[in-house]
């Protein structure tokens, strides 16, 4: 009797496994390759991004604490009194310096916002891509602030990315150095057109530039305005190297991004209503 019960229990387990696993696989396979977040994904995105926002606030505070105080622990032995005073003034000066740097940065962003045609929105980066291959960031602005999929994202240094996914309070940005990113650009001096694609750590590569086109090291690359996503004339990068192979019609153009992607903190989203990105 007990043996029979055990077999029945075993049969039930296999039945559940046999039903749940294929169902799970079908559900996952049906989403492979899509870019849209469904409701559960949006919910998880919102939850984790809120945690990221909290953690980034805490780490920001800890970093400022570290910069302001902990680094100065080494001078404790020199003179306690002097150290206390030094600490006080250092902290004060650090505060002023940080305020000045923030002021300069925000001023630049303000000037940029004023120079851009559409209304803009400033957002803070709260999370970064955990993978080795891809380059995306999470910002603390979402659909409740008017952010929509496809909107261009810039900084005072130039083009930075594009909104890929949104939730009510957060958005995911595809950075321009991600391998999936492509922007229509032109060489500022010679007006040669091409497509800039992200190449991860290598920066950018400019594609579809004919071998007889005039492109040289040091040339500035700007957005062409074609494609309808980015406004015309935004800074993209500088040509670092051109290679003309024997075979093929096109030359290889390597471009150094104008934006330092490792130091990004704040981004400006251009609130374009008629974004063409898909």
């Amino acid at each position: 009797m007990r043996k029979k019960d055990r077999r029945l229990q075993q049969f039930k387990s296999y039945l559940i496994l046999g039903l749940l696993l294929p169902l799970g696989f079908i559900l996952i396979l049906s989403t492979v390759g899509s870019k849209e977040f469904n409701a559960p994904r949006k919910f998880v995105f919102e939850m984790i991004a809120t945690a990221q926002y909290g953690v980034s606030k805490v780490t920001g505070y800890c970093r400022s604490l570290w910069d302001g105080y902990v680094v100065l622990w080494n001078v404790r032995d020199e003179n306690k009194k002097l150290r206390d005073e030094l600490l006080k003034y250092k902290a004060l000066s650090n505060e002023y310096r940080e305020a000045a740097v923030t002021n300069v940065r925000l001023n630049k962003l303000l000037k940029l916002s004023e120079s851009l045609p559409s209304p803009t929105l400033t957002a803070q980066i709260v999370g970064r891509d955990p993978s080795l291959w891809f380059r995306t960031v999470v910002i603390n602005r979402g659909t409740s602030s008017g952010v929509e999929k496809g909107m261009p994202v810039v900084t005072d240094a130039g083009v930075t990315g594009q909104v890929m996914n949104t939730s009510p309070h957060y958005s995911k940005i595809l950075l321009t150095n991600d391998p999936n990113s492509a922007i229509d650009v032109l060489v500022q001096k010679s007006r040669v057109q091409g497509i800039i694609k992200g190449a991860g750590r290598e920066g950018y590569r400019m594609h579809y530039v004919l071998k007889n086109s005039e492109v040289h090291k040091g040339d500035q690359i700007v957005t062409s305005g074609l494609g309808g996503v980015f406004p015309k004339g935004l800074q993209v990068g500088t040509v670092t190297k051109t290679v003309k192979d024997r075979r093929g019609m096109f030359q290889k153009v390597f471009v150094e991004p104008s934006v330092d992607f490792f130091k990004l903190e704040y981004l400006v989203i251009i609130l374009k209503k008629d974004s063409l990105a898909e």
């Binding site: 396979l29 390759g33 870019k35 994904r41 995105f45 993978s131 995306t136 890929m164 991600d178 999936n180």
Partner: peptide, 25 residues
């Protein structure tokens, strides 16, 4: 284990890259 790993994959999927479905599989 399979349930947890599936959910970890789905979570990773949201934050890594732009194409969905790679990590759970």
């Amino acid at each position: 284990g399979a349930g947890l790993v599936l959910l970890y994959g789905l979570g990773m999927d949201i934050f890594a890259g732009i194409y969905l479905g790679f990590y759970p599989i």
